[in-house]
Design a protein around this nucleic acid. Structure first.
Lengths: 152, 152
DNA sequence: GGCGGAGGTCGATGGCATCCACGGCCTGTA
DNA sequence: TACAGGCCGTGGATGCCATCGACCTCCGCC
């Protein structure tokens, strides 16, 4: 992970469809060199994949919510996590410090669907309670942060 | 937005670097046809961009937190939003229903940096108070949800 | 029936991805 | 110092891909 790798990561983070030739021009190396570097970044797990950033509204997922989940004290967090993973509506799942063990970001089409999801969550074994906040709008999401060189 | 468009979106959501030729094979069209469809999806805003999914840990952003922000009653939400946008640490910003007007997902390198960020936030004009939850780990993030056809 | 547009296929061409052989530099060692 | 080996790069070759233009086909509408 030197400065060039960091620059490649930053470029791909902003536009994942850049060609290797273009990346090469940006960082001042040849295309094969960039190809190999990116391959290593992928296989070492620095780059986990490439995703199109899609407007959720446009694909029928206009409702975003954040749900805090309080675990029952008798349950194993791993078991609960496995159950949560079954629910495709859950886009992200964080294990948190605090009373609410999990914080979920959730995407559904309608408030009615959200209601059904909340009911389902509360019925899930290991869930003591949930607390839902509705996002009225996403001002921005997953904004790629400028990466600071390690010496900063 | 027909079923083929939806399939293209789903494919690109999972792997944004698929070639048009490969996409064409997957959906049973020719490459130029797919090229045109994807172009329209981009210019109509359905596809907002393409992002490499990077392990935050690997680029020195090992600390993730969620911060709820309570606005001062005298402030304009848009003004505050503009100020928040200046802070590169804020990865996502949702305008929420509830006491906390904004919910921020934040990514920093160390707990010390998080502390500085919280102090800065509390000093920001328009911010009445903040409430921070620390993510001990991200179980998963931005998982692409299988898209249901509109008739489902 | 004839027309026009949307959206598709096909074929050609230039650029890109990717493989391979080669070379320079840094480093540890005699 | 001289040298050997590994790492990382370059340059050239080759086949695939992106992309353009010409044409075709279907469908709704006059």
């Amino acid at each position: 992970m030197d400065a060039i790798d960091l620059r490649l990561v930053e470029l791909l983070r902003t536009n994942a469809r850049l060609s290797f030739a273009e990346l090469a021009r940006q960082v001042g190396l040849s295309a094969p060199a960039v190809h190999e570097r990116v391959g290593k970044l992928e296989s070492s797990g620095v780059i986990r994949g490439y995703r199109a950033d899609v407007d959720p509204d446009a694909v029928g997922l206009g409702v975003t919510a954040l749900i805090g989940v309080v675990e029952e004290s008798t349950t194993d967090a791993d078991d609960l996590q496995a159950l949560l993973k079954e629910l495709p509506e859950i886009e992200s799942c964080y294990f948190m410090a605090g009373v609410e063990s999990f914080l979920l970001t959730v995407r559904v089409g309608t408030i009615a669907e959200l209601e059904r999801l909340i009911v389902r969550l509360n019925r899930t074994p290991g869930v003591a309670s949930t607390r839902t906040g509705i996002a009225l709008s996403a001002k921005w999401e997953n904004r790629p942060r400028p990466l600071t060189p390690p010496t900063a």
